[in-house]
Simulated scan of single mutants.
Amino acid sequence: MKGLIQRVSRARVDVAGKSVGAIDRGLLLLLGVEAQDTCEGADKLLHNVLNYRVFPDDSGRMNRNLQQAGGGLLVVSQFTLVAETGRGLRPSFSRGASPGQAEALYNYFVAQAQARFAPVACGVFAQDMQISLVNDGPVTFLLEAG
């Protein structure tokens, strides 16, 4: 399981021209699910997302996590994160989870996030989504459950 986090001033996800999730200051998480991923891996990644120190302290150093910063979390499914891009000029998605497995783990991740943290907003699995964001910094990190 891979998660690309971006520290944002604000972020919103739209489906068919309507907002389905939005946050102000916080983290936008693009979440990719691979075939070997498990609920345990999702729990580990969620722990890392919530506790990764990417927000500035009073000295301007990245020493505060999402909870300490009082930000929101916007979770969006992103199957292209698990693409194999090392060969050729076309991505391969053979490492990706099946749609059913990916949706189940995505829903599990969102439910666990909502149980442990607020506010949490999310996109809609397997939909064509448009994401608007203001990346604060810019600050972007790729986290992996493994």
Results as ranks from 00 to 15, higher is better:
59 S>R: 13
21 G>P: 04
115 A>F: 13
68 Q>H: 11
117 F>P: 07
122 C>M: 08
103 E>A: 11
134 V>K: 05
11 A>P: 02
118 A>K: 09
115 A>I: 14
136 D>N: 11
24 D>C: 02
47 H>P: 00
12 R>Y: 03
49 V>Q: 01
45 L>K: 00
84 E>F: 03
80 T>G: 01
65 N>L: 09
54 V>T: 09
65 N>D: 08
53 R>G: 07
127 Q>M: 15
96 G>F: 02
49 V>F: 02
119 P>L: 07
35 A>R: 02
47 H>V: 04
35 A>K: 02
96 G>K: 03
74 L>Y: 03
8 V>L: 00
16 A>T: 15
122 C>S: 08
63 N>Y: 12
16 A>E: 14
29 L>C: 05
96 G>A: 10
32 G>H: 00
13 V>K: 00
78 Q>S: 06
68 Q>N: 14
52 Y>W: 10
28 L>K: 02
109 F>I: 14
64 R>A: 14
81 L>C: 01
95 R>E: 08
116 R>I: 11
121 A>G: 10
27 L>F: 02
66 L>E: 09
82 V>R: 00
94 S>T: 11
107 N>L: 13
113 A>R: 12
96 G>I: 04
102 A>E: 08
143 L>S: 11
111 A>F: 09
11 A>D: 00
53 R>D: 08
66 L>H: 06
58 D>N: 13
142 L>C: 14
134 V>A: 09
54 V>Y: 13
105 L>H: 12
60 G>H: 13
93 F>S: 12
83 A>G: 04
